[in-house]
Every structure is written in structure tokens, then in C-alpha cells.
């Protein structure tokens, strides 16, 4: 019975999946996928070009690694230093800025470390450390993790070398880390997009935002076809061309949750 059932199922799956039409694989970050941005903009691209975009959402570190192994055609991430190294090492063709949003410091409403009402993110980090208030770190080599470590350095602390028991390294994506912070009533650095679409907030709220150092730039890179012959150069390039075009940029600008914009297009306006 099972064998018959299984064979029927196998027959229904064409080799390589449902690859009816052209598709590209984009390695991107959990923040873009989970914020719902892709669901909003990709159908527009597919309608125009007929190219299906398959998004594998990982941390920036893993996403770049996927590109390095040749498992993606395009990477779409947010860690400028790592992206530039990726291109310099010959794994990617060229890095183009696409859009930005910002990081926000999330924490419990009762704010035990008294960081609220400031714009100064490094000052807030110092207060958290002094108060030894619980802080959740992604610790997954994602773009957000890289940004968080950079901010700790700016605040004069070398993380994770000088961490204490209050500093919880979860090694998980933005959503799971927010879930952890929510149940621990801990502080956490998050990207605004994921925060806005996150539902299990509990007692958490945005405490610090608007500092220039919380700027979060996204870039897009075509994986180097010279290194990986199977990379779908043309389809991948059309995606990149589209997303930095006025049409793609408008699509990004048009994505809102509760009338709040999540990402701000800035292709061609800013170098990094």
C-alpha cells in the first residue's frame, strides 16, 4: 500500500522540483524574508520577467557562505564589510547598495538599565553592561550580529570576550532570538523590519532608535559566474537590474506594515 502510494507521489514530483519556469536562487537574510518584503516585491518581478525567485533565508554569514559554495545565484545581505570582502575574494561580481533600514534597541518596557529616551546607542549599551541587565545576542554571524559586535566595540567592550552571564548568546535567527528576549525580558538589537512583523512581543518595546550608527545597509551581489559556471548569470543580473531600477526601488518603498515603511530604497544614491 505504502509503496504504491509513495510511487504515485514520486511520479508527481518532476526531477529538480517544480521547475516549470526559469528561476534563480537568492541567498538572503531572515530579516528580508521574515519581514514579508520578498512576498511583496517578488511577484512584481516575476510578472514582469517570468523569472521565479527562490529565496533561501539565512543569516548574512551563512548566506555569503552559500554564495561562496556556488549554491546561490545572487546574495542579498546586510554586512557591508563582509560583502566587500566577498567581492574582493572573487566570489561575487559587484556589490550594489539597494536599500537600508535601521536597527533598533528593543528592551522591556520597565527598562531596568534606564536606557530609554536617548538616541545614543553606545551609551545605552554601556548602561546595559553596567546594570548587567539581560541582553540577548544573535551570535550567528548574521549581519545583525556583526552590527551588534561593532556597537559593543564602539561602546568600549570587546564582545563576546568580556561577556558575563547577563549576555546570552542564542546562536539563532532574528525571530527565535526575539522570542528568547521576549520570554527573558531582555534587551536585544533587532532590525526594524523583523521587529515590526514580529508578533510575540510580550513586554518588549523599542527603547532606542534613530542613532546614525544604527544604520543598516543592504547590498546585492551576483555570484561570480567565472567561479561557478552554473550560476544563472542573465536571470540573476535581470533581478539585480530590476531591484536597483526605479520600478524595483518603488516596490521596496511601497512595502508597509501598519502604514510604517520597513525599508528605504537608496540604490545609486549612496555608495555604501
Amino acid at each position: 500500500m505504502f509503496i504504491a502510494l509513495g510511487l504515485t507521489c514520486a511520479a508527481l514530483i518532476p526531477p529538480g522540483g517544480w521547475a516549470q519556469q526559469r528561476f534563480i536562487t537568492v541567498a538572503s537574510t531572515t530579516s528580508t524574508e521574515q519581514s514579508g518584503l520578498f512576498k511583496h516585491i517578488l511577484p512584481m518581478f516575476q510578472k514582469k520577467t517570468g523569472i521565479e525567485v527562490r529565496v533561501v533565508a539565512l543569516g548574512t554569514g551563512q548566506a555569503l557562505d552559500m554564495g561562496r559554495r556556488g549554491d546561490a545565484d545572487v546574495v542579498f545581505v546586510h554586512d557591508q564589510a563582509a560583502e566587500e570582502k566577498f567581492v574582493a575574494d572573487g566570489h561575487g561580481v559587484k556589490r550594489l547598495p539597494v536599500m537600508y533600514n535601521d536597527f533598533v534597541l528593543i528592551g522591556p518596557r520597565n527598562d531596568p538599565a534606564k536606557v530609554k529616551d536617548g538616541r545614543d546607542i553606545t551609551g545605552a549599551f554601556r548602561k546595559i553592561r553596567t546594570a548587567q541587565a539581560p541582553f540577548v545576542s544573535r551570535s550567528d554571524k548574521s549581519g545583525t550580529h556583526a552590527a551588534e559586535l561593532r556597537l559593543w566595540r564602539l561602546a568600549g567592550t570587546d564582545m563576546p570576550a568580556s561577556k558575563g552571564p547577563w549576555y546570552r548568546e542564542t546562536g539563532s535567527g532574528m525571530g527565535p532570538a526575539l522570542n528568547t528576549a521576549s520570554s527573558l525580558n531582555a534587551y536585544i538589537l533587532a532590525d526594524r523590519g523583523t521587529w515590526l512583523s514580529f508578533k510575540n512581543r510580550g513586554e518588549l518595546a523599542i527603547l532606542v532608535e534613530g542613532d546614525n550608527r544604527l544604520f543598516n545597509q543592504y547590498g546585492v551581489i551576483l555570484v561570480n559566474p567565472a567561479k561557478h559556471k552554473h550560476v544563472k548569470k542573465d536571470s540573476g543580473q535581470s533581478f539585480i537590474d530590476w531591484i536597483v531600477s526605479p520600478e524595483g526601488q518603488n516596490a521596496i518603498a511601497g512595502y508597509r506594515i501598519n502604514n510604517e515603511r520597513l525599508f528605504f530604497p537608496n540604490a545609486g544614491r549612496r555608495s555604501g
Binding site: 514520486a10 529538480g16 522540483g17 536562487t25 559554495r69 556556488g70 552554473h230
Partner: peptide
């Protein structure tokens, strides 16, 4: 199944076949 792996040329990573 990764492109950099021994079965990479099959190109079946991120497909239902790989999950099977």
C-alpha cells in the same frame, strides 16, 4: 549536494528531491 560538493552538478540542492 552543494555545488561545491561531489554531487553538486546534479543541481538538486534546495529541491524536494534533496529533502526526500
Amino acid at each position: 549536494l552543494s555545488r561545491a560538493g561531489p554531487l553538486g552538478p546534479l543541481g538538486i540542492l534546495f529541491t524536494p528531491t534533496a529533502m526526500i
